[in-house]
Design a protein around this nucleic acid. Structure first.
Lengths: 362, 362
DNA sequence: GTGAAAGCGCTAACAT
DNA sequence: ATGTTAGCGCTTTCAC
């Protein structure tokens, strides 16, 4: 029989072995090389060095070469802070996320990363590591203006709670909390995607379909829920509130929601989780309870994160990484003064059927 | 029968629908609120405002309140660039990675993120999006000094190729390319982990064990390969070079390597891939060829990325995310002037057996 | 308890 | 083709 010890989760105590060098302490920080040092060494003025650095034309070839050699020699690098203070263009795009370590954020980053790779810009991911560190909305405001009026040319903000930003800075949001924010936004066809998912389950014959909700402060959540409710109405199925479990897009609430729904006297035959992280939770609970998916329970999620692919989940794909890509391109246009055709882009969702065959129609 | 349409890969053409607002163009950027504006509005000098901002003690309660109110009112935020120029402490840690979108990088980020969340620091992830954008080693040098002498207090650099950094800046590297760099480093017990993996396969009775190598410029790669070779010698198995395939830690080279190894006249009964991304490639090839794992082919990887968990792969876990966590803590110590006990931390690896039962001992 | 003034490293006029 | 100079917004003495 195959065995599976599976004990690969949880926090690990850091075991230090194989220590190689006993290690000297860090040397004290010494003053960095400045443009002044370069100028002095080259026997020119700082402005000449600056011109070379910024590839201005009117500098003699020979002077350029000499200065470049010295820059190399001294290991000089521009002080970003000082440069940012003086010049408009910083070639830096900021990405603001409350937390970096969840699938949605990671997918967005992949897309942003791809667009960045194709551009002249570099990326600055800004995170406080945790939402709890400071008030949510005010923190967003703070970071946006912090980055825009400081070191970046513009920012992308993921799932902002704040409805308005009092700044005329280049900004693009992904999955904003409100429907018509005063800033450019990228989001998916959440309502339509929800309807499609429901239609799919309905076509399989399901009449009792459970729903696990997401973070209520996000518009995407509400649109998905609305799709769920509207479809039921359209299909003539009375809304049963006990089939709707609350959630917040985390696996834990998916688990909780699944337990609640599956322990009902009259449990649903299908569950629609409003994101894939929660669907994964449902998946786990189903396994624990010995329910096979989709034979015993039809399961569908929203998001299509890599994890769901490996689990073979059926999902509504909203192309998260593409959203990051598009948002970045929009932002670059804005920064470069190219007019946007539309302030709001909606990524078309698509149903990805991976593992669903339960047809319970009579 | 269950069906699986599976068409959820590849680049997606961006379809824009459900456009909500026709969109006005971005308003022109207007001057940001500065400390001067706040001072003027409060009827005090800039230095007083600065004192309040930096929580200095000797400011009258009432003045503080008034200034804070105005700051709120005007929506003032510090100009990071200007602040960085003047003060030593920036409360910002830089993370330098050539690319953000591969599993190793993402795992590192998760760990760093966790440490950041527990700290007073914020995180700045710096990436050029692509290695190809500029020369590798020189780019590293550039970014390190760019960040350290500009806007961050110190940097973490992942898998640097450069052996030395000519900077006395706070820096910690993760998985550096050389064994004894002149900067603090965090890496895993690659050699030992490799030996353990081999021991495990050997104990199952395997004598022909294929190996897929990683990026040759990385010390971790070499240590793993050395472990493979040394174990064979120790076990008295002659080294067969044809069982060693080249790779570069990407899934593609895992696929290529697997094809090469499995199409040998005398193919291996087990494959040890030097990282899990490549092991995933082997997994795919095995599936295509109708080989079951582990019944027909024992497979083991190095890394334990989330993907391998879902595929049920057996791996040598090097706790990537913990490495990020430890590196960040080390860096914070350095920044705060706390001496490090050791310049080099080696994370103890562990064999995670998920799906292995093929015992081919006679 | 508060203000004046010096400068951090750089860029962008304006000179020469 | 190059140098001089004036700040960018902020923190930090050093006065008062």
């Amino acid at each position: 029989m195959c065995h599976n010890n599976g004990n690969d989760t949880g926090i690990v105590t850091v075991i230090v072995t194989e220590i190689i060098s006993p290690g000297k302490n860090m040397p004290k920080k010494k003053r960095a090389v400045t443009i002044q040092d370069v100028a002095k060494a080259a026997g020119v003025s700082v402005s000449t060095v600056s011109r070379v650095l910024n590839s201005k034309v009117d500098v003699a070839e020979e002077t350029q070469d000499r200065i470049r050699a010295i820059i190399d020699d001294l290991g000089y690098t521009t002080n970003l802070a000082a440069r940012s203070m003086r010049s408009q263009k910083k070639n830096l795009i900021g990405l603001i996320m409350p937390d970096i370590a969840y699938p949605f954020a990671i997918e967005v980053m992949k897309g942003v990363n791809r667009a960045i790779a194709e551009s002249e810009f570099d990326l600055l991911v800004y995170t406080t590591g945790d939402v709890r560190k400071s008030g949510r909305a005010s923190a967003e405001q703070k970071y946006v203006s912090l980055l825009t009026n400081s070191i970046s040319d513009g920012v992308i903000i993921v799932a902002p709670v704040e409805g308005e930003f009092n700044l005329d800075a280049p900004i693009v949001s992904i999955d904003p909390s409100i429907q018509n924010p005063n800033y450019p936004a990228v989001h998916a066809t959440n309502y339509q995607g929800s309807m499609e998912a429901m239609q799919y389950l309905f076509d399989l014959g399901h009449k009792r379909i459970g729903y696990i909700g997401g973070r209520v402060e996000l518009e995407s959540s509400n649109r998905r829920l609305q799709g769920y409710k509207d479809f039921l109405k359209k299909a003539g199925i009375p809304l049963d509130e006990s089939l709707i479990a609350a959630g917040d897009f985390t696996t834990e609430t998916g688990i909780k929601g699944a337990r609640t729904l599956l322990s009902l006297n009259n449990p649903p035959t299908a569950i629609f989780a409003s994101n894939d992280q929660m669907a994964m939770g449902v998946f786990q609970v189903a396994q624990e309870m010995g329910l096979r998916i989709p034979e015993d329970l039809s399961l569908i999620g929203f998001d299509n994160i890599p994890e769901s692919k490996y689990l073979g989940l059926t999902t509504v794909d909203q192309f998260i990484s593409e959203m990051g890509y598009v948002a970045t391109q929009m932002l670059i246009k804005i920064i470069n003064g190219v007019p946007l055709e539309d302030q709001t882009y909606r990524m078309q969702t698509r149903l990805v059927i991976r593992n669903s065959c339960k047809n319970i129609s009579q």
